[in-house]
């Protein structure tokens, strides 16, 4: 039993993202309101961003900026002291992507609302069948 808890606690960042992902997925599948679905989608994306950020992080490490770089060429750089910046940088791009997706999704939602006067998927479907 201890082993299991250890396993869960030591990998808490992964469990965190998995839970978030599942929440997002649940919202996308189960919720009938389009805006709620979009929120679910965003949670889903954010979960993955968190995952990336967490793999770059290290305990007791600092920002990867070499403070004494100039003029102090003999100073050795210990990789352990710095976080891995690359995943974070990647996530900047991923966030942009997520925002852009969100923008398009919301724009479409507005269009749908204008067209059907509702955002409930059931009602829209009922209306489409009725036609």
């Amino acid at each position: 039993m201890d082993g299991l808890f250890d396993f869960i606690v030591s990998k808490y960042n992964y469990w965190g993202y998995v839970v978030l992902m599942m929440i997002g997925m649940y919202a996308m599948i189960v919720k009938k309101n389009l805006v709620k679905k979009i929120i679910g989608m965003n949670i889903f994306q954010t979960a993955i961003i968190l995952f990336y950020v967490s793999i770059g992080a290290k305990r007791d490490a600092t920002l990867p900026i070499i403070a004494h770089g100039h003029g102090d060429a003999h100073h050795a750089v210990h990789a352990v002291d710095y976080m891995n910046p690359l995943p974070h940088v990647l996530m900047l791009t991923a966030i942009v992507v997520a925002v852009a997706t969100l923008g398009v999704a919301l724009a479409l939602t507005i269009k749908i609302y204008k067209q059907y006067n509702t955002l409930e998927e059931d009602e829209i479907n009922a209306r489409l069948r009725g036609r």
């Binding site: 679905k37 994306q45 990336y52 793999i55």
Partner: peptide, 27 residues
């Protein structure tokens, strides 16, 4: 618009999965 929204949901899940896979690879 409705069809596209559906596409966005599916597409985003797909892309996210791919991103996750890449994350593991990087890891």
């Amino acid at each position: 618009p409705l069809a596209t929204l559906n596409y966005i949901f599916m597409g985003t899940i797909g892309a996210s999965f791919y991103l996750l896979g890449v994350g593991y690879l990087y890891l």
